[in-house]
Every structure is written in structure tokens, then in C-alpha cells.
């Protein structure tokens, strides 16, 4: 059984302008010790998906449906008390901006200890010792002295390490990382990614890595979900997605990425802007920007269907497989040819 099984998850927000469909029928699952990458551009609903699972959406405006089965228990219908027990102990989360994610008025030692003492009945001393242990594990130099420092005394990379230490303090089974390296420099990003991989081995946690960076996903994910306009465009194993992408949006994402290992004169660009989720396009949500658009795309929303001969690989596009295989091969060949 999967550790987390999300089925047809929907989250709508009520706003003054109408209902925003932030997440609109998303399904995926995460197994023990596995890393799932969720890629998409801003506003594609990848963050809201995870906040919904954690029960962290504003209650007044958010409406959710579907199921998120955590070890056989639905998180969407769990009581607030039960959710609080799970949050931080079984499922932990780290956020994009390490600068604002720590409380500026509390010492980091206290913030770490708080995370532990909320879930375990331990003395302050024990919690502090455990906090120290984790700060060392995430590679903070002179950790003993830094326990009594405030967040503003740390650099961005160090704060993200503190956040990671805090999320791991209760040995969670699942770590949700929401763009954990977006705000950081590349060398710091490399440090943090290496750290997450190392800790994952050590602690055996599953990881959901939310990012807009295909490079990050390619490097650390086992499975990938590509989200576009609140829906899943494509999902599968990392090799399947990167070697045989089946959705024009995935092609666009890959083609629009300038990369170190390939020379292209012009980047493939996806025309236009991501749609507003107040009034999403009819039919396939990608159709207004899709270079392969057909009449059917404007009418019928394609279902997420398995790709034949490729078990575990699902996609939602009306194009026939022959065209897809041809186009994907062309795209990849183009990159490879110029890479050599």
C-alpha cells in the first residue's frame, strides 16, 4: 500500500471575483522512501495541492474534495486534532523562502525544540539536545553556539538547513519540500539538494519535491507529476517523463529551458500566458497555448490515460501516440544533436 494516495483532489477558493480552481482533480501516490517531484509553473496548483494534504489552507475560503489517504486514513476528513498530530511528526513540510519561514523573535533552538515538544512529551533539555543533534546533522557549523541565535543571524542557505533540521526532528515518514531551493544560489542549492538526498537515505523518509525546475526534478525524483492549470498533464517515472515525454506542455517546458549541455539558437517558447483559474479554458486547459491544437481539444477535456507499452506513464492529451512519439523523439534528438 502506498504511504500517501491522493485521488481526485480538488481545492477551490472563494474570492471576490468568483471561485478560483486552484487544484482540479489531481491524483498521485507516494511510496515509502520514494521521491516524488511535482513540476509546474507558478499558479499551476502544485503548492496548494500539498497545503491541502496538510490541511493548511485558509478554512474560511477553501473548499476541498477528493481523498488523501495517509496510511489508510483520509486526511481531508480527519479531525483538526488528528491533523495536528500528523503534521510535523508524520508529515513535515519545508517552504520556499527560508528568510520568512522562521519566526524572527524566537531563538532557533527554541523553534526546533517546540517542533519536538508538540509531539513528544519530553523535557526541554531532551528537546534541546535533539535540536542540537539535528543542527549538526544538517551541517551547521558550531551548532552548540548557534542554538541561541535568532534567524536573522543566519544566511539564507543556513536558514533552509535550520528549516530542514526542524522538519526532521520527529523522524517524519514524509517530507514535503515546497520549492526549497528556489530562493537560493546555485552552490547553496547544490548543498541543500545533497543534504536532502543524504538525509533521505539516513532517515528513510519519502519526499515530495515541489519545484518549477526540471533540472532539480531530474536529479532527485523517482516519479514525476507535471501539473498545468490545476490539473495533471502527465505523470510517470523520471525516465519516462524525460526520455519519452507525452504531453505538448512537457515538451514546451523542456524546450524552453536553456541548458548547459545543449546549444540551441532559439528556445522553444510556449506562446501566451498561463490561464486564469477563475475561468479556465474549456476542453483541454492547454489548448489556447498548444501548437498541436485540434478541434476536439477545445471541446473535450482529455482524461489522464495510460500510455500504451509504457506501464505507469499517464498523460492527458488528445494527440495520437504516433504523432507524440514522433514529436518527442524530434525534440530530444534536437537537443542531443546539438549537445554533442
Amino acid at each position: 500500500m502506498a504511504l500517501l494516495e491522493v485521488t481526485d483532489l480538488k481545492t477551490y477558493f472563494r474570492t471576490d471575483d468568483g471561485v478560483v480552481r486552484a487544484v482540479d482533480g489531481v491524483s498521485f501516490s507516494v511510496d515509502k522512501g520514494q521521491t516524488l517531484g511535482i513540476v509546474g509553473e507558478s499558479g499551476s496548483g502544485k503548492s496548494v495541492t500539498c497545503l491541502t494534504i496538510m490541511g493548511l489552507n485558509p478554512k474560511r475560503t477553501a473548499m476541498s474534495s477528493g481523498t488523501a489517504m495517509w496510511k489508510g486514513e483520509d486526511l481531508l476528513t480527519a479531525t483538526p486534532k488528528r491533523l495536528r498530530e500528523i503534521r510535523g511528526s508524520e508529515i513535515a513540510m519545508i517552504f520556499q523562502d527560508p528568510m520568512t519561514s522562521l519566526n524572527p523573535v524566537h531563538k532557533i533552538g527554541a523553534q526546533l525544540a517546540e517542533a519536538m515538544r508538540l509531539h513528544e512529551d519530553v523535557s526541554k533539555k531532551t528537546a534541546r539536545a535533539r535540536a542540537l543533534e539535528l543542527l549538526k546533522a544538517v551541517g551547521i557549523p558550531r551548532a552548540e553556539r548557534r542554538l541561541d541565535d535568532y534567524p536573522h543571524q543566519f544566511s539564507g542557505g543556513m536558514r533552509q538547513r535550520v528549516m530542514i533540521a526542524m522538519s526532521l526532528i520527529n523522524n517524519p515518514d514524509l517530507l514535503i519540500a515546497d520549492e526549497p531551493t528556489t530562493a537560493l544560489d546555485v552552490t547553496t542549492q547544490a548543498q541543500i539538494l545533497t543534504l536532502i538526498e543524504k538525509l533521505q537515505e539516513e532517515f528513510g523518509s519519502a519526499v515530495i519535491m515541489i519545484t518549477h525546475d526540471l533540472g532539480v526534478v531530474a536529479e532527485i525524483a523517482d516519479d514525476v507529476v507535471v501539473m498545468y492549470a490545476a490539473e495533471v498533464a502527465e505523470k510517470g517515472g523520471v525516465e519516462q517523463i524525460f526520455k519519452k515525454p507525452h504531453h505538448p506542455y512537457t515538451w514546451g517546458l523542456m524546450g524552453s529551458l536553456p541548458r548547459l549541455d545543449a546549444d540551441v539558437e532559439r528556445l522553444v517558447q510556449i506562446q501566451g500566458q498561463p490561464p486564469s483559474m477563475l475561468r479556465p479554458p474549456t476542453g483541454c486547459r492547454f489548448h489556447p497555448r498548444c501548437p498541436y491544437v485540434m478541434p476536439i481539444c477545445k471541446e473535450v477535456d482529455p482524461a489522464l490515460a495510460p500510455v500504451s507499452d509504457d506501464p505507469g506513464h499517464l498523460q492527458s492529451c488528445h494527440l495520437d501516440e504516433e504523432t507524440k512519439n514522433r514529436e518527442a523523439a524530434k525534440l530530444l534528438a534536437g537537443m542531443m544533436a546539438e549537445a554533442s
Binding site: V186, T187, Q189, A190, Q191, L193, T194, D213, L214, G215, V216, V217, A218, E219, V238, E239, F242, K243, M254, L257, R259, L260, D261
Partner: peptide, 19 residues
């Protein structure tokens, strides 16, 4: 070496030089 490569076969087996 720190830049992630969007290619799982290359990216995964490459060693980053971590500063």
C-alpha cells in the same frame, strides 16, 4: 557542477562539487 541537469541519466550519476 551545481547546476541541475534536466536529464535523469546524466544528472543522477554526476557528482556535484559541493562548496
Amino acid at each position: 557542477s551545481a547546476v541541475p541537469v534536466p536529464d535523469p541519466t546524466v544528472g543522477r550519476h554526476r557528482k556535484r562539487i559541493v562548496l
